[in-house]
Nucleic acid binder design. Sequence first.
DNA 1: ATAATAGTTTGAGTTCACTTCAAGTCAAGA
DNA 2: TCTTGACTTGAAGTGAACTCAAACTATTAT
Lengths: 121, 121
Amino acid sequence: MTIKEVSRRYQIPEDTLRYYERAGMIPPVGRTPGGIRNYSQEDLNWVELCLCMRSAGLPVVSIARYVQLCRMEEDTTQERYALLLEQRRTLLEQQRQIGETLDRLDKKIARYEENMKKETK
Amino acid sequence: MTIKEVSRRYQIPEDTLRYYERAGMIPPVGRTPGGIRNYSQEDLNWVELCLCMRSAGLPVVSIARYVQLCRMEEDTTQERYALLLEQRRTLLEQQRQIGETLDRLDKKIARYEENMKKETK
DNA sequence: ATAATAGTTTGAGTTCACTTCAAGTCAAGA
DNA sequence: TCTTGACTTGAAGTGAACTCAAACTATTAT
């Protein structure tokens, strides 16, 4: 699968796909004899994981560190496990923070709706 | 209340407070005759709102637009209401996205724990 | 064979949200 | 009066995550 097709499938610019690879968030993608990227199913899985993590706001370096650990010869199970737990903690905290802001927003919105009801009375 | 006290209270640099005001995320703060910022309770409320929104990741301009609408002479109730709804939609979507990523992360974590249990057997 | 189209790399540029710096003002204390 | 220190504004610098440009190579249609 060419970079263009991947770009269209996931609605992400080609430049960003190349950038992700350069940044180490995706292991080096397979190439044709001519040196053109040819994404395998496994490459696509990496891309998808990467997009999922990024859309949740996890930093590029933290995703890259995981990928790097996966590509090492030695057994990095412990490190990877610890990294995943840390990423989960980060996301839970972010989710909590957003929840707090939503509460606040909802209260404001409710007040507006109250006032708008009164106006039309 | 001086900028220093506000800074300490909310654990945010003085420079950032001034920046928020300059960016229009906080309406102009009251001043002493000497021209020094003197935060009233209402100013503090704005600061707090602003910190809450930012920590949830809402962009500076979108917060500034709301504040700007609040400061206008005309009745901007409709616009403000619409803006709040839009911000809520944004945050809900972000929360959903984080939830999705957490699911994925949890599955990965579970697999690691499975394997680690087997290892020690 | 050759032109057009699409893909490659490397390095530089852009945007956002701060963050720090530079240069200046002012008020109180030694 | 001089100095210290907190304050001001405007501008420049930083780090993260793209995004674009230039020069080059590969593939495809004619």
